[in-house]
Simulated assay, not measured.
Amino acid sequence: MASKSTTGLPLDSANIMSTVLEGILYGFSVLMFIGTIWTFTYKQRIRDINQPSTVVATLLFVLSTVHMIVGIIRLEDGLVKYGNTFHDGPAGFFADVTQQTFVTKNTIITLQTLLGDGVVIYRCYVVWRSVWIIILPCMMWCGVAAFGICMVYVQAPTTNAKNVFGNQTGHWITAFLSLTLATNLLSSGLLAYRIWTIERNVSGAYATKNNMPILRVLVDAALLYSAAFCASLVCFAISNNGFYVLGDLIVPIISIAFYMVFIRVAISKKIHECLSATLC
């Protein structure tokens, strides 16, 4: 099978670095998850809790936790358990994309990405209040799902794929990353534009001081989300092993980006309720 020559870190070093950096970001995402749940539930009755957002936040936490655990297992397998049985040692193990741990991690990345993109598209629908505005993003989301499934399928243990940069896997990964990036940029752009136009037409000090930070948080989250995928796509395009590092960091970054928005929106809602109670 034809494969591209790789550059950058050795694969064993790349996997060690990715696990360490992911652990740091995961710890930060855990704190933000706790903060998110606290803002949703503090002094709230059960029926007043935003249940959809709570479910999404919990799913993001569960997926990132499982991804972290599988990453640690994969690191141990490559360095201790199975690494010496491969021709190139641990580097050969980490290069083998048909390993069950690698397939599992990519499955989680696909699910995390679909969940994140789905939330942004749903927000577009809520803000625009029109099904027509989300037709293209929904079609692109379906494309992301299809490419993600194909990407995971070609890396199954029953296939002959042996290199993530090889032709058998490369075009599916490129399509998945590119379409995910485009879907997020389009959906976030539509969402930000709608909020900006609404706020521009709203008069009063409260709207200016309280709601515009939400727009900034949405933009910051979208930029963080998109920057991670863009960097991964660049590394993959030049066959750099940094792709392994950035690929693992995508999962906690997605969680952090959405926790940012959840916390800010929840705080803004409580401020609005307090002001309304004071003025009434």
Rank of each mutant, 00 (worst) to 15 (best):
F94R: 04
G148D: 04
A95H: 05
A192I: 15
L190S: 09
P90Q: 01
A146D: 05
Q168Y: 11
Y193L: 14
L181E: 12
H171R: 07
G166E: 15
G170D: 12
L115S: 03
A145G: 05
V126M: 06
H87K: 12
Q112T: 15
N167I: 09
W128G: 00
K81H: 05
Y153Q: 13
T197I: 13
N201R: 09
I198S: 14
I109Y: 07
L181P: 02
Y153G: 02
M139E: 01
I133G: 05
G89W: 02
I133C: 11
S188I: 06
V103A: 10
G170C: 02
L186N: 08
I133W: 10
L181Q: 08
M151S: 15
Q100L: 10
L177P: 01
T158R: 11
W196E: 10
V164S: 10
I135Y: 06
P157Y: 12
E199S: 08
V152K: 03
Q100T: 12
C138M: 14
N167C: 03
L185C: 12
A161R: 04
T113D: 05
G92E: 04
S178N: 07
L136I: 15
L191R: 13
G116Q: 00
A95T: 01
F93I: 00
L190I: 14
N201L: 10
N106S: 04
F86I: 02
N160V: 02
L79A: 02
F86S: 03
I121P: 05
V97M: 09
I195H: 09
V103Q: 12
Q99G: 08
S187A: 15
T159K: 04
H171P: 00
W196C: 10
A156G: 02
I121H: 10
K162I: 12
R194T: 12
T197C: 12
N163Q: 04
D77M: 03
T107A: 10
V152R: 05
T183A: 15
K81W: 01
I149H: 07
D96S: 07
I198W: 08
L114C: 11
E199A: 08
A145C: 11
I134M: 06
